[in-house]
Structures are given as structure tokens and as C-alpha cells.
Design a protein around this nucleic acid. Structure first.
Length: 203
DNA sequence: ATTTAGATCCTCT
DNA sequence: GAGGATCTAAATG
């Protein structure tokens, strides 16, 4: 059925992975067997020790950042603002603590379980990093798990051309000095599932 | 339409 | 003890 991405995919350059994740499908199979999935429509690259916006800036190795120091192909999920989780895909070989934040999904399977309804359109239940974790039920129990497994994985879904992909500075990293302006956010141009941003226009 | 405030807790200094 | 890779609701112009 699903054509899973192989381990090699995750070892590539982080910016390359961030772009290529657009159009891919993220799948979470619950213990009950029910499937929650969505197409990735927005990502951000975090470039490790040289990136002031990255949790692993300056090779900061802590309990939280440890997954990023592992080899690419596992998850990095952290808890933030006292109530939200953020899901990342770890990239590159061991020792390069880099990752891609998945910021928004277009739900594909399990819409009812994600809280979609007539009132709440499916493109609004996972259009943000915290919201997508709630929709797919991703939390710290899934931190550091393999993304080629049967529980949580990524798969091919839609082929995109370079014309489908837009970029912008990353969101919510005002503390990150000059990196504030780096164009490391990628999203599918004109896709309704992309998160709403009130910085300067990027729809 | 845009801005502000509150929720809420884990991680690091 | 401070602040955060966020979200929602409520207040304001």
C-alpha cells in the first residue's frame, strides 16, 4: 500500500529534506489499528550547531535535544508552551544535530478522530505545528522513534514541481539573531492547509 | 481587522 | 526563575 521512504532519505542535506517532505504522507497507526494521516504542506529546516534558531545551536546536547544527535530517520518531539507538542524529522548522519519541523498537514485518513466536522473543516485541524500533533496524537511517547517502522512513518504521496513550493523566513524565532531572516520555511504554494501567519504575506 | 492575554509546564541557566 | 520552533478567545479600533 504505502510506499515508505527509506532510511537514506533522511540522511540528505536538511534543506533538501525539508523541501522534499512537502507532498509526502505522515502516518500514525494507533494501537487500536486506526490510522491517522495527512499530507505535509509546510516545513521548516533547523540547521544544527550553526543555526541560532535551532535547539542544538552550538552543539547543545541535553536530554531534550538528544534525538537530533542520533542518525537521521527518527522523530524529535518536544513539549512547549505548557500545552503543545512539535514534531520534527531528524536528518543527516549521527553528529549533525539537524531536523525538519513539520508545521502543517492536510488530513487524509481519520478525519473524524482528528476533530474535523462540518463546523471545523479538515484543513483547519492540522494547520500548525501544535495542532497537527494534537490531530495525529503525537506526543513525547513517540519521541526518538524510527520513522521507517510500522507505528509512525512517512510515505510517498504526491509529486510536486519546484513551482509548487514557496519559501519564507521561519516562524516564532525572534530570538535567533540574523537567522530570523533565513528563508528556511517551505510550503505548498496556495495550499489551504498552510498555517496562517500574520507576519508579512505568504499565502 | 488587528492586538492582547491567558493557558500551563518542561527545560535550561 | 525565565521563557518558549503555539493556539484560542476576548478586547479593541
Amino acid at each position: 500500500m504505502d510506499k515508505k521512504l527509506g532510511p537514506e532519505f533522511y540522511l540528505q542535506d536538511t534543506i533538501e529534506v525539508a523541501r522534499q517532505l512537502l507532498g509526502k504522507k505522515l502516518v500514525h497507526v494507533l494501537p487500536s489499528g486506526e490510522r491517522l494521516s495527512g499530507m505535509i504542506v509546510e516545513t521548516e529546516a533547523y540547521l544544527g550547531s550553526e543555526d541560532p534558531a535551532c535547539h542544538s545551536f552550538g552543539n547543545r546536547l541535553t536530554t531534550r535535544t538528544a534525538p537530533m544527535f542520533e542518525g537521521g530517520g527518527i522523530s524529535y518531539i518536544y513539549f512547549i508552551y505548557g500545552m503543545h507538542h512539535c514534531f520534527n524529522v531528524v536528518t543527516r548522519p549521527p553528529g549533525h544535530p539537524e531536523a525538519v519541523l513539520v508545521r502543517a498537514l492536510e488530513p487524509l485518513e481519520g478525519l473524524d478522530l482528528m476533530g474535523a466536522s462540518a463546523q471545523r473543516r479538515s484543513t483547519e485541524v492540522a494547520n500548525g505545528p501544535g495542532k497537527l500533533c494534537r490531530a495525529l496524537r503525537l506526543d513525547r511517547n513517540l519521541n526518538g522513534v524510527e520513522l521507517c517502522g510500522s507505528q509512525l512513518y512517512l510515505a510517498e504521496h504526491r509529486e510536486l514541481t519546484t513551482a509548487d513550493v514557496a519559501d519564507s523566513p521561519r516562524i516564532g524565532i525572534h530570538y535567533a539573531a540574523d537567522a530570523v531572516h533565513w528563508p528556511l520555511r517551505f510550503f505548498i504554494h496556495n495550499h489551504p492547509g498552510v498555517s496562517k501567519v500574520r507576519y508579512f504575506g505568504s499565502s
